[in-house]
């Protein structure tokens, strides 16, 4: 039984299907419900593996210690986070520091970045999303989002607003912005002197493009025999192909 992240539910279901085809003697059940639900299920021993699109929180680890549960973390894949704007926006690249200024509210107009005089509409995923937490931690340096940031419940509606609003900027899993006509994905520079890099399978895998969140499996203690077999399968050549098919990036070997 595998429970957890809705972001990963397609990926995990695909893995499970191929796994059961390869090992017909084992059966794997997959359920979504969110990373938090999965972690709670792990604590209640209601699941063998928890799929999570965010790393386990301090308060959850605290609870695990109280319940004397040893939590093990397995990085299964990466999700590159693309920074995207409207196709008519002349800006092509930004630095990490620009991103921090934009989402913490220091920049409010594209003119602040040398672009046209156009008010910025800054978009974010809502706080239930693993992407939100990763972006806040990694890009904003644990600072808060500005209060004027618009929060979108779903990645698809965020992309829709990006495609229709000239002044908008948002971040979203790179699987959602494959249509280059609808939105423009920006290249990101680590700092002023660095080379601007666009998110791609290679750049995310090698870490040259650094805005990517890991997707995890959590198990209670060492995985059991079947769970270990499954994890090994997901990391095999066949499992990595599934990762690519679902729009994520396999971990470097």
């Amino acid at each position: 039984m595998i429970r957890g992240s809705d972001t990963m539910v397609n990926l995990v279901a695909w893995w499970a299907e191929d796994f059961m085809y390869a090992y017909p003697e084992h059966s794997v059940a997959v359920r979504g419900g969110g990373s938090g639900t999965g972690i709670a299920a792990l604590f209640n021993r209601a699941t063998d593996i928890c799929a999570s699109s965010r790393s386990i929180r301090e308060e959850e680890l605290q609870r695990a210690r109280e319940m004397n549960i040893d939590i093990q973390e397995h990085v299964m894949a990466l999700d590159g986070i693309a920074i995207a704007v409207h196709p008519d926006n002349p800006v092509d690249e930004l630095t990490m520091s620009d991103l921090r200024q934009i989402w913490t509210g220091a920049y409010t107009n594209w003119a602040d970045l040398g672009g046209p005089n156009l008010p910025m509409t800054v978009l974010s995923r809502d706080s239930n999303s693993g992407t939100y937490v990763h972006f806040q931690q990694y890009v904003l340096g644990e600072n808060d989002f500005a209060r004027t940031v618009r929060f979108m419940g779903a990645s698809s509606s965020l992309v829709m607003e990006l495609a229709s609003n000239v002044g908008s900027i948002g971040y979203v899993g790179m699987g959602y912005v494959e249509d280059e006509e609808a939105v423009k994905v920006l290249a990101i520079k680590e700092d002023e002197d660095a080379e601007a890099v666009r998110p791609s399978i290679e750049s995310v895998q090698s870490g040259v493009y650094s805005i990517a969140r890991p997707l995890y499996f959590y198990t209670e203690g060492a995985p059991g025999e079947v769970a270990q077999l499954f994890i090994d399968f997901c990391r095999s050549e066949q499992g990595r192909d599934v990762v690519l098919e679902t729009g994520f990036v396999p971990v470097a070997e």
Partner: peptide
């Protein structure tokens, strides 16, 4: 201006909170 309503907040955030937090 954008606003965040009570219902939207519950719907958006309930899915991934730690129970009892």
């Amino acid at each position: 201006e954008p606003v965040r309503t009570m219902t939207a907040t519950i719907a958006a955030e309930m899915g991934d909170v730690t129970r009892g937090a």
